[in-house]
Structure formats: structure tokens, C-alpha cells
């Protein structure tokens, strides 16, 4: 039974994918500083310790602020580019779009160092703003990829029909286009938020005196005694990611159902 063997392989592959993440909650609630089996007992100590680290709280607040602004700006830029690509033909379109999408295939370290060099050269002080600049750059291609399918799925004659029935271009956009691509916009916001919240390298290079959460985390990884706390923090982060992703997927599917399109797969 070929399918049978493949199924066993596939399931064990899923186990391989999820095994490390599964360790997070296990050791986050484990009453012991050594990360090893057998488990010692149940504790909430590591979670309560999380509430007592001011530096962590600053980092979280900083990261959230950066992620929200990044999500808004890159989704806005993504809407412009995706709409232009879906509606208009102009010379050099492929080249321009390809260039905008370039950060998808560029090693992040290169984006990070090149931005760093330029910012230092023109004398801009490193801060949350510089991190946002970098994050918007790498999030925008993901936003475009998501929004593209929303805008491409949108039947052009829907907008023409509204225009034909007496609406202006602006009110057509408000009454027809926006409601129909809204699910795409929401998942774009969520994805950009998730990427920014999780991004390390660019933040590591471009952050000033206010580290983001991953940068703070990076600093903690060196100390073995802090590992259980990191595990607790990781558990919360993974739970948040899964929640955001489920939301994003929900809105994506609702968008497809709304415009009557066909489900063509995931985010990527």
C-alpha cells in the first residue's frame, strides 16, 4: 500500500516539524532548571517571573509598536503596488515589481548591513524608526503576495458596474473594491505584524538603545539559568503566532468565499 507508507512518512514528518515546538510548553511548565526528561513537576514559576522583568516589558512594548507601524505601512505600500500590478499595464512593470519583491530572495544579513551602512553614512541615529524602515522593506513583498491574489480575484466588471450605475471612482473604491479586498488587507496586516514581531537580524543591526523582543531574547539565550523563562516566553509567542495565523487564514478563506473564488492554497 503506497499511500499507506506515504501517510506514515507524512505523519512522522509532521512530528519532526512540531517536536521542537512541542517542547516549549512541556518545559515551560516543568519545575526544574535543567531542560531534560524526565519531568520534575508542574509550576507556573517561569511565567510569573516573566512579569517581573522590566527590560522584557520594554522590549515587548517596543516590538509591538514597531510591528503595528510596520504592518500598517507595508500593507499600505502593498496595496499600492498590488493594485497597480493588477489593474494597469505600464512599461517596465515586471522589472519594477520584481525589484520590489527582491527582499524575498535576498539574504537578510545583506539587507541589514547595507541599510546599516547607509544610515550610518547619512548620520541617522539608530532607533525604533530605523528598525521599522528595515522591516517595512522585507514585509512589503509578503503583503504584495497576499494582496495580489485579492486584487487579481476581484472581477474588474464589478467596479465597472458600480461606475456604470453612477458612482464616482472614489465611491466605487469605497463601496466595492475595499469591502471585497478587506479580508486580504486584514491577513496582510496580520502577516506583516507577525514577521516584524519575529524578525531578528535586521532588528539586531538597526536597533538603537531600545532592543526589540527577539534582540532581548538573543541576549538571554547565553545564560543557561534563564532557559526556563525563555521557554515560558517562547510558549506565549508561539501561542500568539498560531492565533494570528489562524485569524489570517480565516479571513483569507472568508475573502475567497465572498468573491466566489476557488481556494488555491496557503499564504505563500
Amino acid at each position: 500500500m503506497r499511500g499507506g507508507w506515504l501517510r506514515i512518512y507524512a505523519l512522522s514528518y509532521l512530528v519532526f516539524l512540531y517536536a521542537p515546538i512541542a517542547l516549549l510548553p512541556i518545559f515551560a511548565f516543568n519545575d526544574g532548571t535543567v531542560i531534560a526528561f524526565p519531568l520534575r513537576g508542574f509550576t507556573l514559576q517561569w511565567f510569573s517571573e516573566l512579569t517581573q522583568i522590566p527590560a522584557l516589558h520594554t522590549a515587548v512594548a517596543n516590538s509591538l509598536m514597531i510591528a503595528v507601524i510596520t504592518a500598517l505601512v507595508s500593507t499600505l505600500l502593498g496595496i499600492c503596488a498590488a493594485r497597480a500590478a493588477a489593474r494597469y499595464d505600464f512599461p517596465g512593470k515586471r522589472g519594477i515589481m520584481g525589484f520590489i519583491m527582491l527582499p524575498l530572495v535576498l539574504p537578510e544579513i545583506i539587507v541589514a548591513v547595507s541599510l546599516l551602512v547607509v544610515l550610518l553614512q547619512i548620520g541617522i541615529r539608530l532607533s525604533a524608526v530605523t528598525v521599522i524602515l528595515g522591516h517595512v522593506l522585507i514585509c512589503t513583498p509578503f503583503c504584495i503576495a497576499i494582496l495580489n491574489s485579492s486584487f487579481q480575484n476581484l472581477d474588474k466588471s464589478l467596479e465597472e458596474a458600480a461606475f456604470d450605475l453612477g458612482e464616482t471612482r472614489l465611491s466605487t473604491f469605497r463601496l466595492i473594491t475595499l469591502p471585497l479586498v478587506m479580508p486580504g488587507i486584514i491577513s496582510s496586516l496580520l502577516i506583516a505584524f507577525t514577521i516584524s514581531l519575529d524578525e531578528f537580524i535586521i532588528a539586531f543591526f538597526l536597533t538603537g538603545n531600545e532592543p526589540t523582543l527577539p534582540v532581548y531574547l538573543w541576549g538571554q539565550l547565553r545564560f543557561p539559568q534563564k532557559i526556563p523563562v525563555v521557554m515560558a516566553l517562547g510558549t506565549l509567542l508561539v501561542a500568539l503566532s498560531v492565533l494570528l495565523l489562524t485569524l489570517a487564514e480565516y479571513f483569507r478563506r472568508r475573502g475567497i468565499a465572498r468573491t466566489g473564488g476557488k481556494d488555491t492554497g496557503g499564504f505563500l
Binding site: 472581477d155 466588471s157 464589478l158 465597472e160 458596474a161 458600480a162 461606475f163 456604470d164 450605475l165 453612477g166 458612482e167 464616482t168 466595492i176 469591502p179 471585497l180 465572498r258 468573491t259 466566489g260
Partner: peptide, 20 residues
């Protein structure tokens, strides 16, 4: 004169029924 100010209305091939 743009389409929204012409005394014509259109039935589209795809019908263009607003799905929402």
C-alpha cells in the same frame, strides 16, 4: 463624459453582481 454620467446602463457578461 465618463460612464457614470452617461444615460446608458450595462449588463455585464459575468453579470458583475456585487457578492457582498
Amino acid at each position: 463624459v465618463p460612464a457614470n454620467r452617461r444615460p446608458t446602463n450595462m449588463v455585464f457578461q459575468s453579470y458583475a453582481i456585487f457578492p457582498h
